[in-house]
Simulated scan of single mutants.
Amino acid sequence: MTAELAERQIGPGAGRERLRATALDLFTERGVSATSLQMIADAMGVTKAAVYHHYKSKDEIVLAVVRPALEQLMGLVRLAESRRSRAAQVETMIVGLADLIIANRRLYALLQGDPTCTAILQRYPEFPTLGERLVALLAGPDPDPGSVVAAGMLLAGLRGAGSDPRVMVLDDEEFRRYVVGCAHRLMRPRRPASATG
């Protein structure tokens, strides 16, 4: 297929955006591993060659789909890491994650919950350490097991809450209020366990 024909089928700019949106629909409905380039092409009503003209592999499409949210998440981590106090770091993470979920509900679920997506992102330069940095910001330095469990539950719960159909009907402000409130309760400071148990 010539480049000109591929551009006519999908088009630059808005066409690439439509390709990414179609891929996201299929990835969230079927999972990344069960979605083929042919399925994406069929859903768009174009040839597989037209998809290949824009992205050479499914991995490239996955990266294109998740990169905006991933970059927002990395920016949030850098912002939280720049805060001086532990409380300010946790608050920045809680509020920032709530806003990130609101802006990218389906995408966040894909980013945090699809094993094939996670495997692809392991090759993305900053991603392998991102999960550790998230937990470190939420749980703190030298965290006790309870803080690590709470941070893990918060991150996993955000994925579920963001994609649950019963929650998707909430408007953004109401959803944000619930998320921030639950996160505050989960991440409240803990007293050290007594030596006598």
Rank of each mutant, 00 (worst) to 15 (best):
M93W: 14
K58G: 02
L97M: 14
A64G: 06
L70A: 01
V66A: 00
Q89D: 02
L76Q: 07
A98D: 05
M74K: 05
G75N: 07
K56C: 00
R83D: 13
D59K: 10
G96M: 03
L70E: 05
R84A: 12
M74E: 06
L100K: 05
Q72D: 11
A98M: 11
V95K: 11
L79P: 02
P68F: 09
L70P: 03
A64W: 05
Y55V: 00
A87M: 12
V77S: 06
Y52S: 01
S82R: 08
L70W: 03
G96N: 01
A64S: 12
M93H: 02
R86A: 10
A50W: 04
G75W: 12
K56L: 04
L100V: 06
V77N: 02
M93F: 13
A88L: 12
Y55N: 01
R67N: 13
K56V: 08
M74G: 05
Q72F: 14
T92Q: 14
A64L: 12
E60R: 08
I94P: 03
A98K: 04
M74N: 04
S82F: 13
A49H: 12
R83Q: 15
A88M: 10
H54V: 03
S57E: 00
R67D: 14
H53C: 07
R78Q: 14
S82M: 08
I101H: 05
L73Y: 12
L100D: 04
L76T: 03
R84Q: 13
I102C: 10
V66L: 11
V62I: 13
K58D: 02
A49S: 13
P68V: 04
S85N: 06
E81M: 10
L97T: 01
E60D: 14
V62F: 01
V95Y: 08
R84M: 07
A69W: 06
E91I: 12
V90L: 10
R86L: 09
L76M: 09
A64R: 07
R84K: 11
S85Y: 06
I94L: 15
L73W: 13
V51H: 02
Q89Y: 14
I102P: 04
K56F: 07
Q89L: 15
D59V: 12
H54A: 06
V90T: 03
Y52E: 07
R86F: 15
V66K: 03
V65D: 00
L73K: 09
R78E: 15
T92W: 15
G96V: 05
I102E: 11
V95W: 09
G75F: 09
T92K: 06
H53R: 06
R83E: 12
V77G: 00
A80T: 00
E91K: 11
Y52I: 07
M93I: 10
R67G: 04
Y55T: 00
L73Q: 11
K58R: 15
I61L: 05
V65A: 01
A88E: 15
I101Y: 11
V95F: 13
V95E: 10
D99P: 03
I94D: 01
R83K: 13
R84D: 15
M74C: 02
V90F: 06
V62G: 00
A98C: 03
E81D: 14
V77F: 12
V95S: 03
Y52K: 04
R86D: 04
V51R: 01
E91L: 09
R84Y: 10
A69I: 14
G96K: 05
V65Y: 06
V90I: 15
V65S: 00
A88C: 14
P68W: 06
Y55M: 01
L79Q: 12
V66R: 02
